[in-house]
Every structure is written in C-alpha cells, then in structure tokens.
C-alpha cells in the first residue's frame, strides 16, 4: 500500500483471551504494514487491542492470551511459524520493545549496566567486560549524563525519564531493525515526553530503524509518525499516511476522535464528544463495532462489519460509507 517496502506486515492477525466467560477477541483481524525506516503510529483508546497487538508481534502474550490466526511477516518471514527458540533470537535482537511504565519495567535488584549488557551477552556472546563497555556506549548514545556512574546504579536511583532512556538503550543495544514502543511516554511529564520523542526520532535516523509507536495520544502521532493505523475494538478502522489522515479523516471514528480534542487554534464552548461508551469486549455489537456510537450509521452498519477497503493507494478505511451501495452522504464532518 505504501510506496516503501514494508519491514513488517501483519495479515489478519487474531489474538484472543480465553477466560471463564468465553473468548475475548482482543485483536480481531488486524492487517497493517510497517514501511522500512519509517514510523507507524497505532492509535486507539484503552481496550482497543493496540497493546495486545504489539505484544503479539514478539509473542510475549501471557496466559490466557493466544494468537489464534493470521500472519506476521518480518522481512517476509512469518514469525508465527518460528519456534520459541527462534523467537528468542529475534526478541531484543532484530525486534525490540519498550513499555509504558519505565518505573517498573526495569528489574529493581540489578544495576543498569547488568541489565543492558545482558542483551549483548545473550545475542552476541560477548564477555562481561566488552558487554559493559558497549552498554556504556549505549548510555552515552541515549543521552544519559555521567554514564560511567549510572552504569553501576540501580533503577531506583534514576528518574522516570532517565529510566525510559535506559529502556531505550537496552532495546537498541543490538541495533534492531524494528522498535515497538508501547505508550513510551504516557507515564512521563510533557517536557520529559518531548525529550524522549526527540530521542526516538533521532536514533531512528542514526540507526536506520523502523518504529511502531502505540499510543492513545493523537498529538504524539501527529508529531512523530509517517503512517497511522487507527484501532477500535480489535479492528483497524483506518490506515493512512499521517499528513493525509490529519488533513482529512475518513472514518467517522477517526473524525470523532479529532473533533473531541480541545484545540489550540480554535475556541470551542463545547467539545464534540463521541456519544456513548466503548462496548465491553465480551458483548461486541453486531455489525460495525462503532455503529452504536456512530451518527452516520444505517441499517447495514448494524448488521454487517465492513471490510477494510483501500480507497486510494495509500489509504484504507473500514466503513460502509465508502461502499458502492451507500445511499447517504459520503462526507464525514471534520472541523480541523
């Protein structure tokens, strides 16, 4: 879909959680591409399945979560057919991941140096001394002041922003081709968030990586991503190049999200909230999942979930409005 060759292609991925009350389809047929060397943003509200999708890529799901279908092609090789041992060689080496909570994502009982050098020792068979030397270089690369001292400190001695830098150093130690960042700045203050985002962008260029940023924050997507996938209730509802998407959202949910944000450039007495609530994952509505909250919904929307339809070369939308049989208006209101 995109002009650049993809490094990662997800095709019809399905991940479910099997609980006593039944099957919760957290990711229900997600298809997306990550263009090589670019940043893909996956946006959506809590419970839309974006984090589960991210964990599925590295197969880091915990019980009772299970990938039940689809393909995850990394450089055209299906990761879902790899053995656990082969996956281990990929994790932290070819594909790395950083998480939302820098405060709890580092092991409290080991030093920073120990934790970073572990990556080198397991993936590059490096000796302890060399691995520490490399770790020191990584700390320098991610802009941690007095890295020699930090190397021997424990996580509690570092601030949240510093810990997230350490997480990034750890993730990028083996120069992965793809970095999956799951809400990397959500737990951080705005000024620190800005630092971390700059750092990720900067390192992306330096190390020629591709990045997936999972976030609920549209502002972060606008500032950092080349391409965007919008998720709602386990589905991708819209996928487009960032500029186009923010210029003109096509799916009513995307437009609704944008409209409900307080804006800097316009004064509004009332925000245009999306009505209702996200449905519970065990009681998914019939038809299009967004239909109960959608002001454009017609009969067909309530009966059948539309497919993700390619509109032009670079954009795909999962909405009946863009089908041939649609009688109503094809304009989705957006006050951008």
């Amino acid at each position: 879909m995109s002009s650049v060759e993809p490094i990662l292609q997800i095709k019809d991925l399905r991940t479910s959680f099997f609980i006593d009350r039944g099957e919760v389809k957290a990711v229900d047929g997600v298809t997306l591409d990550v263009p090589k060397g670019k940043t893909l943003g996956v946006v959506g509200e809590s419970g839309c399945g974006k984090s589960v999708m991210a964990l599925s890529i590295l197969q880091l799901l915990e019980e009772p979560g299970k990938i039940v279908g689809g393909e995850i092609l990394f450089n055209n090789v299906n990761l879902l057919q790899k053995s656990e041992k082969e996956m281990r060689d990929i994790r932290g080496n070819n594909i790395s991941m950083i998480f939302q909570e820098p405060m709890t994502s580092l092991n409290p009982v080991y030093t920073i140096g120990e934790q970073i050098s572990e990556s080198y020792r397991v993936h590059q068979n490096m000796g302890k001394k060399d691995a520490y030397q490399k770790s020191l270089e990584m700390l320098r690369l991610v802009g941690i002041p007095s890295p020699e001292k930090r190397l021997h400190q424990y996580p509690y001695e570092l601030s949240g922003g510093m810990r997230q830098r350490v997480m990034i150093a750890m993730a990028l130690a083996c120069r992965p081709d793809l970095l999956v960042a799951d809400e990397p700045t959500t737990a951080l203050d705005v000024t620190i968030q800005a630092q971390i985002l700059e750092l990720i962008k900067d390192l992306q260029t330096k190390l020629h990586m591709s990045v997936i940023i999972i976030t609920h924050d549209l502002g972060i997507v606008a500032e950092t991503c080349d391409r965007v996938a919008v998720m709602y209730c386990g589905n991708i509802v819209e996928q487009a190049d960032a500029e186009e998407l923010f210029e003109r959202p096509r799916h009513p949910y995307t437009a609704g999200l944008f409209n409900s944000l307080p804006r800097h450039d316009q004064e509004k007495e009332e925000l245009e909230a999306i009505l209702g609530y996200v449905p519970s994952p065990i009681e998914m509505p019939q038809g299009c999942r967004f239909s109960p909250r959608c002001s454009y919904a017609e009969e067909i929307c309530r009966q059948q979930n539309p497919d993700l339809k390619t509109l032009d070369n670079t954009r795909a939308v999962r909405c009946w409005i863009y089908s041939d049989g649609w009688k109503g208006s094809k304009e989705v209101a957006y006050h951008g």
Partner: peptide, 25 residues
C-alpha cells in the same frame, strides 16, 4: 513557554521549533 511548546500539535505539516528542556525536574 517550554511547557506550551512541548504540547504536540495535531498537524504533521505544521511541525515547529520546539523548546526541549534539558535534564529532569
């Protein structure tokens, strides 16, 4: 000023100079 400039804007085309504060609080 730094706080305000750290808020991401919604227009990818309007990327602007941002004051990124160094260091932690």
């Amino acid at each position: 000023k730094a706080l305000l400039s750290a808020i991401p804007v919604l227009r990818p085309s309007q990327k602007r100079e941002r004051i990124v504060l160094t260091g932690d609080v």
